[in-house]
Amino acid sequence: MNKPAIGITCGDINGIGLELIVKVFSDPRMNEICTPVLFASNKTVNFYRKLAGDNHFSFNAIKDFSRLSNKQLNLFSSWEEEVAVTPGKLNEIGGKYAVLSLQSAVKALQEGSIEGLVTAPIHKSNVQGPDFSYTGHTPFLKHTFQAKEVVMMMCAENMRVAVATEHIPVKEIHSHLSTELILKKIEIIHQSLSFDFGISKPRIAVLGLNPHAGDDDLVGDEESTVISPAIREAKNRNQLVFGPFSADAFFARGQYAHFDAVLAMYHDQGLIPFKSLAQGEGINYTAGLHIVRTSPDHGVAFDIAGKGIAQPHSFLEAVYKCVDILRNRSEYEAQRANPMKKMMPEVTSKLVDEKIED
């Protein structure tokens, strides 16, 4: 596989996204891994380059993809007007240009000008408008690329945690869950572990919804009426699926280490233990799309924006993982085209083993 062109969105221009991008791509070795394309504007990026002080960050400004450089970050102009950047402030400007960056990057994906996408964080409230009425990147990408269903999967070296429901109020979780939904999520996870992560016989754990996984229906019956039927049907499809597990004991006892992925029923059930155990290096991957999209596992962090103290580990991991998944997909397709060719046994490519030290 040739070095892929990876699109980078700037996220909320008042958050930590552009600071992280400057830090990550100040290291010229990143250009050995991919051809990065940032979707923003010269003046906005220069604001954060100056804020970072003495660094080796530089970029190649382009207005069309015929002028991509393989030796430095490329900056595709997504807007021309001068924009007031106010780090740490939640305002309409931050949301407006986050959406412009995302739309510009998605257009490039659709046209084949880039091969993968890494998205910097946006704030859900200030991106709302006529051109963007979604609760985040995941539903927007699901709609744009016409996927019937997708899965938000958090990935780290030691675990992968997916969620059956995403950004919805806790009081509505019950009404969103169904056997059909859970079964579809399991199917997508299973396919992604094989196709995107190179795991031939993935093992998937499914968590219960209620305390103690319902405790034999004493504290809720969703486990027996909704979740277990989905697990049984997945097993009938020859998938290695287990559960439902009591969420607290599952993570406390380290059971997650015995599985290739875990399906949680709702956002906090999965993400609280994930972020606690991933040690700041987790990433978010949207499984179920025909394109590859990753992001860091944190938000805009307005409280530290503009202070130069944001840590780039998760964003760096998101870039690595985007490249890795593209590589794994290429190898998977090559194996399908030539079944006699032995697939590489590694779950991820050697790029992750050659991580750039800070």
Results as ranks from 00 to 15, higher is better:
residue 3 K to M: 13
residue 5 A to L: 10
residue 6 I to Y: 12
residue 11 G to I: 11
residue 12 D to M: 02
residue 13 I to D: 10
residue 14 N to T: 09
residue 21 I to T: 13
residue 22 V to R: 04
residue 30 M to Q: 02
residue 32 E to A: 04
residue 44 T to C: 10
residue 47 F to S: 09
residue 52 A to F: 06
residue 52 A to D: 12
residue 57 F to E: 09
residue 58 S to F: 11
residue 61 A to M: 13
residue 63 K to A: 12
residue 64 D to A: 05
residue 72 Q to I: 01
residue 72 Q to C: 13
residue 74 N to A: 07
residue 75 L to V: 03
residue 75 L to F: 05
residue 79 W to R: 10
residue 82 E to H: 13
residue 84 A to C: 11
residue 90 L to A: 13
residue 99 V to K: 09
residue 100 L to D: 01
residue 106 V to H: 04
residue 116 G to W: 01
residue 120 A to Q: 11
residue 126 N to Q: 12
residue 136 G to W: 14
residue 137 H to D: 06
residue 140 F to R: 09
residue 149 E to N: 13
residue 152 M to G: 04
residue 154 M to P: 09
residue 157 E to K: 04
residue 168 I to W: 06
residue 173 I to S: 10
residue 173 I to D: 06
residue 180 E to A: 13
residue 190 H to F: 15
residue 190 H to G: 10
residue 191 Q to C: 13
residue 191 Q to I: 10
residue 192 S to H: 06
residue 198 G to K: 01
residue 198 G to H: 08
residue 198 G to N: 15
residue 202 P to M: 03
residue 206 V to A: 09
residue 217 D to M: 02
residue 219 V to W: 04
residue 222 E to L: 06
residue 227 I to A: 13
residue 229 P to W: 02
residue 230 A to R: 04
residue 232 R to M: 11
residue 240 L to G: 03
residue 252 A to M: 01
residue 256 Y to I: 07
residue 272 I to W: 01
residue 277 L to N: 04
residue 280 G to M: 00
residue 282 G to S: 08
residue 291 I to C: 02
residue 291 I to W: 10
residue 294 T to H: 12
residue 297 D to K: 03
residue 300 V to D: 11
residue 301 A to T: 09
residue 302 F to L: 15
residue 303 D to W: 07
residue 325 I to E: 06
residue 328 N to Y: 05
residue 352 V to W: 00
residue 354 E to H: 06
residue 358 D to E: 08
